[in-house]
Design a protein around this nucleic acid. Structure first.
Length: 563
RNA sequence: GCGCUUGUAGCUCAGCUUGGAUUAGAGCACUUCCCUCCUAAAGAAAUUGAGAAAGGAAGGGGUCACAGGUUCAAAUCCUGUCAGGCGCGCCA
C-alpha cells in the first residue's frame, strides 16, 4: 500500500520539479496520530525550504496534482495543514495484508538484502574457567537474535562462539589449583570450584606475578600447565553446552583463542615488518595516540601475548577463511576502546576489510538495586541456577492454573515460558543501555513481558484449534480493532528492516509486544467464533499468529501452541 | 584529568538515528469498572455459569536532569552545567 502512495507522490512531486527516489519519499511517510485523520500521511515541511513556499500551500498543490486516485485502494486523500492524508480503502487493505501473510508464511517480512553473502557474528564468547553468568547472557541472547535477523534478510550467517580459553586467567587457575585445588570437588562441580580458586587468587595481590608466570609457562608448552589447562577447559565446555541447550542456542563454529597461537607470532612479525610496532617499557605496542585511541599493547614484557594480539590474529584468520562482507562482534560496551583499537590496527596493517567489522556493544546488566554484578567478589549468579529458579517459579504458576497437566508437558511449557521471559526481558531493552536484571519482573504473566506475549499466541492457537480455517474469506465490515491489527501486521517488514539496519533486536521485541497487545484488544472486542465474518476473522487470527511467530523466531523465542 | 555514554511518571523502560498534527507514550504498582473464543462445574449441543483468567477500559501521577542556543517548530540537533556509569599499558 505504501508503495502505491509513493508512486502517486513521486508523480506529483515530479510535476512540481522535485525529483526524489522511492526510498526517500517512503521515509517521509508516517502514520497520523489518529486513524480518523487517515492511514498514512505525507508532511510537506521539508519542501518549503526548497520551494520557498508555505508548507500548507505546497500540500494543497500536491494534492491537486495527484488528482483522482484509483477507487479500489483509496477512499480519500485530503490535506490537513501541511499534511497530505491518505485514507485507504480499509477492506481492500485488510484483504491484501492477510493474503500476503498467509501466502508468504514464515517468509513474510523477508527482504533479500544479503544475496547469500557472508556475515560472521561473534557472540556469547564466554571465558572458560569462569562460570557462565549474567554478563555472558546479554551477548548470547542479543547476538543470537542479530544473527537470526541477518539470516532473515538474506545473508549467509556464521554464528561464531569465540571461547576465551587463553590468557592470564588460566595462569591464575593453574596456580590456584596447585595451591588449593581438590580433585573431587573439581569433578563434582567444576564451575563452582574453579570460581572459588579464581576468586582466591584474584583477591590476593601476592599471586599476581606467579599467575603470569604460569600463563607464560602455558604459552611455552609446559606439560603440567597444558594438562591442567585442558582439563579445566573440557570441564567448563561441558557445562557451557548444557546451558546453550537449555537456551536453545546453537553455533556454527566454536572458535577459541588458543587456536590462534601460531597466528600470533605472525601478527607480531607482520606488525614489525610494517613498522607499526614500538618498544615501550619492555613491551611491544602500537601507538595510536594520533588517532585519539591511546596505545594498543600487543606483547607483554615477558614475551607473552595479550587479548589484542589474539583478536588481531583471529580476525585475520577469519577473513582468510570466510571473506565475509561483515563481521559483527557482539560484546559488552566496556570493550569499546579495545575494538576501536583492533579495527584501527587492522586498518593500519592495510586490511581494508577492517572497515566491515563492527562492534555491536551492549550495556551491562545491573541488579535490582542498580549495582553491577561482579565476578571477582564472587557475586556472580550462575546461569544454570537462574534457569532453574525461573523454571520452577513458572511451574508453580502453571500448576495453579492447570492442575491436570502432565509432567512432560509441564516441563516443556515451563522451560519455554522461562526462556521467553528471560529472552524478552533482555531484548526489549535498547541494547546499548544498561539494563536491570529483575527476574520477578521478567516472569510476570502480565504486562510487557515474554509470558504475556506467549499467552497471546496461545490464545490465537486455541481459537484456531476449535474451528478449521477456510481458504476463502470476504470482508464485510471492519471494526476499529480489526483494522488496527491489520495495520500492525503490515508493519512487520519495515520493523525487521529497521532492526537490521540498527542491529538492534529491541525494535522487533517492542513490536511483538505491541502486536500482542493489539491482538488482545481485538480478541476482546471482536468475537471470532459465531461472527458473521468468521472466515475473515479466522484468517486474521491466523496471520497474527504467523507474524508473531516470525518475530519471536527472530528473537530466539520458541512458541507454545497452548498454555 | 581525558575520552565515551546515560539522565523521560514512585519503579522498569519506549520515543531521539531522519526535529513537526493541540493532551510526551507503554508496563508495573494504586483506584474504579467491564468482558468471557481461557480455566473449574453441568449439558449431546446451543447454552447455563462461578472465577483474585495470564483479557480489556477508565482515572490519578511528568519542569522529557538543569541552563542557554539553532529553528516557523526541540524530549529529539548544538554548547555548557550538574549527577550516574564505563574506559584510559603488561586482565579479558
Amino acid at each position: 500500500m505504501k508503495k502505491e502512495i509513493v508512486k502517486l507522490l513521486k508523480k506529483a512531486l515530479n510535476e512540481k520539479g522535485i525529483k526524489l527516489k522511492d526510498e526517500e519519499i517512503g521515509k517521509f511517510i508516517e502514520t497520523p496520530p489518529s486513524p480518523d485523520m487517515g492511514d498514512f500521511s505525507f508532511p510537506c515541511f521539508f519542501l518549503s525550504e526548497k520551494l520557498k513556499q508555505n508548507p500548507n500551500q505546497i500540500a494543497l498543490e500536491i494534492r491537486e496534482k495527484i488528482g483522482n486516485p484509483p477507487v479500489m485502494d483509496f477512499e480519500d486523500i485530503q490535506t490537513s495543514g501541511p499534511y497530505i492524508n491518505f485514507v485507504l480503502n480499509r477492506k481492500s487493505l485488510a484483504k491484501k495484508v492477510v493474503w500476503e501473510v498467509l501466502n508468504q508464511k514464515q517468509d513474510f517480512g523477508k527482504v533479500n538484502l544479503g544475496h547469500k553473502k557472508k556475515i560472521v557474528v561473534e557472540f556469547s564468547s564466554p571465558n572458560m574457567g569462569k562460570p557462565f553468568g549474567i554478563g555472558n547472557l546479554r551477548s548470547t541472547i542479543i547476538g543470537n537474535s542479530i544473527a537470526n535477523i541477518c539470516e532473515f534478510e538474506g545473508f549467509n550467517v556464521i554464528k561464531m562462539n569465540y571461547l576465551g580459553d587463553w590468557g592470564t586467567q588460566f595462569g591464575k587457575l593453574i596456580l590456584g589449583y596447585k595451591k588449593f585445588g581438590n580433585e573431587k570437588k573439581l569433578h563434582e562441580n567444576p564451575v563452582k570450584h574453579l570460581l572459588e580458586l579464581y576468586v582466591k587468587i584474584s583477591n590476593n595481590k601476592r599471586y599476581e606475578n606467579e599467575s603470569r608466570k604460569w600463563f607464560k609457562k602455558l604459552e611455552d608448552g609446559d606439560k603440567e600447565a597444558v594438562i591442567l589447562w585442558r582439563a579445566f577447559k573440557e570441564l567448563s565446555l561441558n557445562e557451557l553446552k548444557k546451558i546453550y541447550k537449555l537456551l536453545g542456542i546453537t553455533f556454527d563454529e566454536y572458535d577459541a583463542e588458543s587456536k590462534h597461537n601460531k597466528g600470533m607470532d605472525k601478527v607480531i612479525a607482520e606488525l614489525k615488518e610494517k613498522k607499526l610496532l614500538k618498544k615501550s617499557e619492555g613491551a611491544q605496542i602500537v601507538q595510536l595516540k594520533n588517532y585519539n585511541l591511546g596505545t594498543c599493547l600487543v606483547q607483554k614484557s615477558d614475551g607473552a601475548t595479550l587479548y589484542a594480539t589474539r583478536d588481531l590474529a583471529t580476525a585475520i584468520a577469519r577473513y582468510k577463511k570466510y571473506k565475509f562482507v561483515r563481521m559483527i562482534y557482539e560484546v559488552g560496551k566496556e570493550q569499546k576502546l579495545h575494538f576501536k583499537q583492533l579495527f584501527k590496527v587492522l586498518n593500519l596493517m592495510g586490511y581494508g576489510w577492517a572497515d566491515n567489522c563492527v562492534h555491536v556493544a551492549h550495556g551491562l546488566y545491573l541488579d535490582k538495586d542498580g549495582k553491577k554484578f561482579a565476578t571477582r567478589k564472587g557475586k556472580t549468579i550462575f546461569m544454570a541456577d537462574i534457569i532453574d529458579q525461573t523454571t520452577s517459579l513458572i511451574k508453580k504458576e502453571i500448576k495453579d492454573r492447570t492442575p491436570k497437566i502432565s509432567k512432560e508437558e509441564l516441563e516443556d511449557r515451563a522451560l519455554k515460558i522461562a526462556m521467553a521471559a528471560i529472552f524478552y526481558g533482555d531484548l526489549k531493552n535498547n541494547r546499548s543501555n544498561d539494563a536491570v536484571f529483575d527476574i520477578k519482573r521478567f516472569i510476570s504473566f502480565d504486562g510487557d513481558t515474554g509470558p504475556y506475549i506467549l499467552y497471546s499466541y496461545a490464545r490465537a492457537s486455541s481459537i484456531l484449534k476449535k474451528v478449521t480455517t477456510k481458504k476463502k474469506f470476504e470482508v464485510f465490515e471492519l471494526e476499529p480493532k480489526e483494522i488496527e491489527l491489520v495495520k500492525k501486521l503490515s508493519q512487520f517488514p519495515e520493523i525487521v528492516l529497521k532492526s537490521y539496519q540498527n542491529l538492534n533486536p529491541s525494535v522487533i521485541a517492542n513490536y511483538s509486544y505491541q502486536l500482542a497487545k493489539i491482538f488482545n484488544e481485538f480478541y476482546h472486542a471482536c468475537p471470532v467464533i459465531g461472527s458473521k465474518q468468521i472466515e475473515f476473522r479466522l484468517a486474521l487470527v491466523e496471520s497474527f499468529r504467523q507474524v508473531l511467530r516470525n518475530s519471536l523466531k527472530l528473537l530466539g523465542i520458541k512458541t507454545l501452541e497452548q498454555m
